[in-house]
């Protein structure tokens, strides 16, 4: 084969790869249906934390609140609530909502999982 033929084959392969990438990433990407909450978009995460805070206001059960927050990732409950509180403060949440999050943050900062002695 001549070198011009090789160039044509190489260009054709490149076009094929490009088409494959466009199809696989844009037109028909892998569909995820069973994801875990740690990859929730930030506003959804914060709303989830706010729900936990609302429930905590009624239940006053740090154990349950910490367990509910744990599904959001490997960070500590206090860190998760701190992130949510920062988001809420920067995005004009109502004062009531910020106070709920602050209440939850205080509870999570004091909370010690069972079996671990407080320092």
């Amino acid at each position: 084969m001549t070198s011009s033929n090789w160039i044509k084959i190489f260009i054709a392969a490149l076009i094929g790869i490009a088409l494959g990438l466009v199809y696989g990433w844009v037109l028909a990407p892998v569909q995820y249906t069973d994801v875990t909450p740690n990859i929730l978009r930030e506003d959804y995460r914060v709303d989830y934390v706010l729900m936990v805070a609302e429930a905590h206001q009624n239940e006053q059960d740090p154990e349950t609140a910490a367990r509910r927050l744990a599904i959001l990732g490997s960070e500590s409950p206090a860190e998760i609530v701190t992130s949510a509180l920062n988001y809420a403060t920067n995005n004009n949440f109502t004062q009531d909502e910020i106070m709920l999050l602050q209440g939850l943050l205080t509870a999570m900062q004091k909370y010690q999982p069972q079996g671990i002695d407080a320092p």
Binding site: I9, A13, L14, I17, A18, L19, G20, V30
Partner: peptide
């Protein structure tokens, strides 16, 4: 050469899909 180009195109397409999926 046309067959060669078509084969290369499909080969590239397969590689692209394998990478993206």
């Amino acid at each position: 050469s046309i067959l060669q180009i078509i084969l290369a195109l499909f080969l590239g397409l397969g590689l692209g899909l394998a990478y993206s999926w």
